[in-house]
Design a protein around this nucleic acid. Sequence first.
RNA 1: CGGGGUGUGGCGCAGUUGGCUAGCGCGCAGCGUUCGGGACGCUGAGGUCGGAAGUUCGAGUCUUCUCACCCCGACCA
Length: 476
Amino acid sequence: MKSPEKITKQSENFSKWYTDVVRVADLVDYGPVKGTMIIKPYGYAIWENIQAIFDKRIKSKGIANGYFPIFIPEGFLKKEKEHVKGFSPELAVVTYAGGEKLTEKVVVRPTSETIMYDAFSKWISSYRDLPYHVNQWCNVVRWEKKTKPFIRTTEFLWQEGHSVLATEKETDELALGRLEEYRKFFEEILCIPMYVGKKSEKEKFAGALYSTSCEALLKDGKALQSATSHNLGQNFSKPFGIQFEDERGKREFAWQSSWGMSTRTIGGVILTHGDDKGLVLPPDIAPVQIVIVPIYKDAADKKQVLEYIEKVKDKTKGIRVKVDDRDQYSPGWKFNEWEVKGVPLRIEVGPKEAKEKKITLVSRIGREKANILLAGFNTDKELEKFKKSLLEMAKKFVSENTFEVSSYEDLKKVIEVKKGFALAPWCEDSKCEQKVKDETTATTRVIPFDQKDIKGKKCIVCGKEAKVWVYFAKAY
RNA sequence: CGGGGUGUGGCGCAGUUGGCUAGCGCGCAGCGUUCGGGACGCUGAGGUCGGAAGUUCGAGUCUUCUCACCCCGACCA
């Protein structure tokens, strides 16, 4: 309804700034159970926009949606031993239901591999059934110790896509293809540049052959794993018995991939574009893309201004535009309100504009006021311009906060002083990775796909021959 | 789980060595004046002070226990 509260400055307390923004912009409220979050209509509208755009992209690849149960027999999780080991500390388990103690405990899904793959084993029997894909939009529950709205919550919303393929090669291609779809989505729609690559053994998904990820560099220098795509190999098809007969009649275990993106993405948007004024939303996902604030003193002005606004609205067909004609708030109050809420463009219309057939256009970034003729105003062009500068700003920030390092001292400096990403030569030994984590709390984020020449480089931790370049950063 | 902190109307807070009708700002409702960068006046509604037990003639205030949340770690696709 109203946002009278001030937002803590980013430089004072970044963490407080974040929680202030999500609350004051009316995105969420805390739920009564620790770590849960109520997504309010304005926040949910952002998610719906993300869903709508990405869902369309999934379907354009010929992948349809399905829905699997939220309850999973506990035994399913146990079939893949790394998977259960990875997830058991954070499971919510139902032991009592319908007034009775359950003979087999039921797990609230933390992810759906197991319940889906049990079903797949019944549905797939021939190479003609492959590739098989299904995507689902749903909620999952992970009982995390430390939570933060959108970034890490006990229950969150996501899409999880699951693919079953015949060969390793196809699975590699699929997994990488899906990751590239995420990367494009983040860059084109959310204006967030991503580092993409492979996860280290230590950081991979529990049960995967390997994992790939999109990592964002946020305003506080931390990394946010924003979407992942895994090659699960035959790790699940074997325990779940997903087998098919190939062209020659030979029975083979299928290859699998899962890929997902969650409401965490909204946290990434806030932490990439937000400023001391509040949210800044990329136009494609903004619930309100343009807000029109009428300005008038008396009834005669009001009539004239509102009539003129109808003409302005003719120029904004097909986009999400809102006219804020609430009388109880002053124009200045409304300006601030919609800035907190991250609306990309604002149009101010008063008697002057109405008379001169003009509008006053103000961007959420920059905020210089442009007094332009209505006839020369093109919404698509303006929103496109906004998007472009948003992405440019984010790209600039990422490149300014990514540093190539050649020594352990440099790495520490980047993590602790400069607060950013460090690209470092690494021997791929998890002991070295662990040492960095123990001493700096930074972890390996991704081994980028585009590897520069590593010949002759030494691992910054142990000094032995380096095998890859890897990004280190503190992670959310 | 370890360290630190906070719980008092919707939000932010004050409340003295225990003392009688628990205050303030914002927000909310009504009326009036305002309206080009968070307007103002008057009137009003709203709280068993996180919970439990105890000490006391008397507890927001003291004691013990407990719960929740926040920050920093640990843990965690």
